[in-house]
């Protein structure tokens, strides 16, 4: 498994555009790349849609022979139907998919592959990894673990913290697992972990309740930046001064901005950038136009976003 940092990937993308531009003149056959992603129902998926649409514009402008079709679906079943519609109406040279769930989408994707389509999977791997030609994903365990390491170090391995988790899914489980595994090796006590459904409102209420329940809280971790915004509002309202750190994750632009501004309560974040879908689309385009074979698994690291490097994670135009 190749482990490359996000920055390296960015460099690679830039390089590949130049390489592909050269090759574009050679291959004039029309190439169709279908992109199937979840609809924009909350912040992170909103970012996915934004980056996919950006990639579509940029690639179609750079390579007139490549046609990128972006299709969003509000549920796993809808995504299965979308796949059937896409592959029925035209020949797909490549499919870039961010599956709703691994289990439900594995079969349908396999069917698409049977027609000779190149398969690139983003974020959530299929149950049978042999189907995917290309796999680009973030590291959810690292998101939890890196945050936990930073927090434990700052707290001197002592203290009491509370955690807000999202919706019961693999992503949520992995982040929580990465976080708690690190914390087990410290003297930090996790007072409580409850679901807040990756929702600002619910995180606000849950944090209010945590504050009422526990007289001493040293730090908070919300495993998503949407929830972090609710947490911060609740802390601000309470006027409590015992909370030293409130951290999130995902690299939402508002939070990245806080990091850039050296906010004392939220000085770091961890990326799980929705732009990974854009990386994947570029890599697939390279596969067809640049004679740059792109197969294998690419796992994006989750390095800490700090005031020093925050500008690299700052996309002011993205909705996320």
């Amino acid at each position: 498994m190749t482990l490359i940092s996000r920055r390296a990937l960015g460099l690679f993308s830039a390089a590949s555009i130049m390489a592909l531009s050269a090759g574009a003149a050679l291959a004039q056959d029309k190439v169709t790349i279908a992109v199937s992603i979840p609809a924009a129902t909350h912040g992170w998926t909103g970012g996915v849609v934004y980056h996919a649409e950006q990639a579509e514009k940029e690639i179609e402008a750079a390579f007139p022979n490549i046609d990128v079709i972006v299709k969003t679906s509000p549920s796993a079943t809808a995504q299965v139907s979308a796949l059937e519609d896409l592959s029925a109406s035209q020949k797909l040279d490549a499919l870039v998919i961010l599956p709703f769930t691994s289990e439900e989408l594995t079969g349908p994707v396999e069917q698409v592959k049977a027609n000779g389509t190149f398969i690139a999977v983003v974020a959530r791997g299929l149950t049978d990894p042999s189907i995917q030609d290309l796999y680009v994903a973030g590291d959810n365990i690292a998101v939890g673990a890196n945050t936990a390491k930073w927090m434990a170090e700052k707290l001197g391995n002592e203290g009491k913290i509370v955690v807000l988790r999202g919706i019961p899914t693999v992503i949520d489980d992995e982040r929580i697992q990465g976080f708690t595994d690190v914390m087990k090796g410290t003297n930090i006590e996790i007072l409580d972990i409850q679901y807040a459904n990756w929702n600002q409102d619910e995180a606000f209420k849950l944090m209010q309740d945590y504050l009422a329940k526990y007289p001493q809280i040293d730090a908070v971790w919300a495993n998503d930046d949407d929830m972090l915004l609710g947490v911060l509002e609740a802390v601000k309202q309470s006027g409590r001064t015992d909370i030293k750190y409130a951290l999130g994750g995902n690299g939402m632009k508002d939070v990245v901005k806080m990091v850039m501004d050296e906010n004392p309560m939220t000085p770091v974040s961890t990326p799980y950038p929705p732009s990974m879908v854009k990386s994947a689309i570029y890599m697939v385009a390279g596969q067809f136009n640049g004679q740059a074979p792109m197969r294998g698994s690419f796992k994006l690291d989750a390095p800490l976003i700090t005031p020093q490097n925050a500008d690299q994670f700052w996309y002011p135009d993205s909705p996320f």
Binding site: A40, H42, G43, N199, Q200, D201, D226, L229, E233
Partner: peptide, 8 residues
Amino acid sequence: RLGAATPT
């Protein structure tokens, strides 16, 4: 309260 409207 939170200063924003979101799809959720």
